[in-house]
Design a protein around this nucleic acid. Sequence first.
DNA 1: GTCTATACGATGATAGAC
DNA 2: GTCTATCATCGTATAGAC
Lengths: 212, 212
Amino acid sequence: MTQPDTKTRLLDAAESLFSQQGFASTSLRAITSDAKANLAAVNYHFGSKETLLSAVLQRRLLPLNQQRSDRIDQVLSAATAAGTTPDTEALVRAFIEANFAFRRDKYGSSALISIVGRSMISADPVVRDLFLALIHPLINQLHQALCLALPQLPTRLIFTRLFFTMGAMGHCICFSGIAQIFKEDPDSNPEDNNVMTNNLINFVTAGLEAPC
Amino acid sequence: MTQPDTKTRLLDAAESLFSQQGFASTSLRAITSDAKANLAAVNYHFGSKETLLSAVLQRRLLPLNQQRSDRIDQVLSAATAAGTTPDTEALVRAFIEANFAFRRDKYGSSALISIVGRSMISADPVVRDLFLALIHPLINQLHQALCLALPQLPTRLIFTRLFFTMGAMGHCICFSGIAQIFKEDPDSNPEDNNVMTNNLINFVTAGLEAPC
DNA sequence: GTCTATACGATGATAGAC
DNA sequence: GTCTATCATCGTATAGAC
């Protein structure tokens, strides 16, 4: 087994540390130390800390978004074949489910998913813009599909609700652990992943389908 | 008109800058420069940058949360008087509406509301914990009220959905401007505050009321 | 009690030697 | 490609003036 090259070691270390501590709180010195690389290696290979984050996101997000895009297309094709409008919940599921299944996916990384959640709702314009650029085409695709599923609603309203969906999803991915903070129930256990995913899908599907 | 004291000038400057740039991206030097105070004034008056954020949040959030708490109590009282269960949408409105009305409230600050949005969904544990400590009692109150409004649902599920609600709300408050990013529609105007608020209330009410 | 001046360690970034 | 040295800026702390 050969040692991965410096660039890969930096990506792996950054992915792990960003997911544990967040982007701002992780220093380049911590990353290069974990990756057994020199401090200047990050700027040599990636240009800046920000571009390193972009590379970390792209490595996992491009295949993930391809999965989601394919699943949306499948829902649309099935609806066309059946001569019906696409099902809202199926579209929501196509968009959300892969995000959580990703935790155990062989191509994925359990660390990356919390970076995705953080990026999606980050207040930092740098982080947010990177994420938006990566997910923009997928959002447009989903928006158009939802317009077919919900022809009685204005497209603008559907877009607004899709925006709320992303907020709920990002919050869910990133902070499902802190839900316990409020809970006084002493025997409360962390929700199972699948239960939480289905709860989220039910919630946003109902919100998207609400009357105008 | 007398000049506000140093402590107030620091709070005002921090509130303004945090809302524009976020907590992490705002330096103490920028704050003290705006407030025409010495760099050390922050640590003298507040102890740390983190405690300054806490003071900025508390100054506006305590009266705001009192308003929200009162409105929730009103909804509960009205339901008891009428012998009915409380209305879910009325509770959601009590929780959300004041947040947006706050922008024009004479006691409020238009800047503060985006700090609230950012804090609510911040990935930074320091920021998030400060915010959670301030809003914890209100969340518990709302949760109990929603359990009365939705007796057919498990309390745990209601809590999870309340969690999604906070995600959608924080995202909405903080990033309503970037909704335009995805929109190709050339004549799209930023949504009016009231329209956006009502859209959010409709969305989360439907999500909260979804069948189990 | 308030405020100023100053210094300390850590950070992201970069230039230049090898 | 990699490394050392160095830079400006950051949050924080403190000594001392008023």
